[in-house]
Amino acid sequence: MATANIEVSETPLVLYALRRADDALILGHRLSEWCGHAPAMEEDMALANMGLDLLGQARELYTYAAKVEGKDNDEDKFAYLRDVRQYRNLLLVEQPNGDFARTMVRQFFYAAFADLYWRAMMASSDPTFAAIAAKSEKESAYHLRHSSEWIVRLGDGTEESHRRAQDAIDDLWAYTGEMFVVDDSERGLIDAGIAIDPAALRPRWLRTVTGIINEATLALPKSDWMQQGGRVGSHSEHLGHLLSELQSLQRTFPGATW
């Protein structure tokens, strides 16, 4: 029984917390995959650092989701005992690391959003979210700075690095729209002042992104077609593989404490 997926009562508040927690966990997990394999030791440190920040955010958000839900779920049950259809993260964060350019572009797109998002969420009427936002905002600001510097270096570096960075932008661009989408469940929280409306952040996000991309002598794609589905559990094929690795011990030894 213990290997079975948990059931989650996805009230708007629980769902909201899980979506943000899943973003942080999955992106943190992706960054942790680099550990020991980065292009330079300094970058090994930096990628692990960002991964740890995100893992920390995920743990706080899961713990709060568990508290709000009020059942016997906890951070580990949310992380280890939900299947791909129950995960609520953005498609962007589950995209594979690829080369270093792809990892940095993914980080850059997300951090440019998270930085604005968490800063705005510091005004949440929910004190727990406001506190999580205050911490996450500081971390995201660093992630944005670090990834921005790399986008510029790669874009304005060598021919090869420019090409790789441009390829990454072209491939990942379609996953950026989902960050700004709001559904009915979230609309209620926005109206109640618990959450903020991400759509309102898009102009500023685009300004930040365009500024860096221009400085890097790169270009944003013309296409405005955007993929979505992560927020309701319609993921890319990549997430299942990530989860099978992440969850392997919990699934193999049901009910054990580690």
Binding site: S32, G51, L249
Partner: peptide
């Protein structure tokens, strides 16, 4: 030495263990 332990970061059995192991391997790099 980052490699043998790094081998388990993505499979660490709880979020607490995962964070601790990632931090540990990062220390080794440091």
């Amino acid at each position: 030495g980052m490699l043998p332990e790094g081998n388990w970061i993505t499979r660490a059995p709880s979020l607490r263990r995962k964070a601790a192991l990632l931090a540990k391997v990062q220390d080794e790099c440091g």
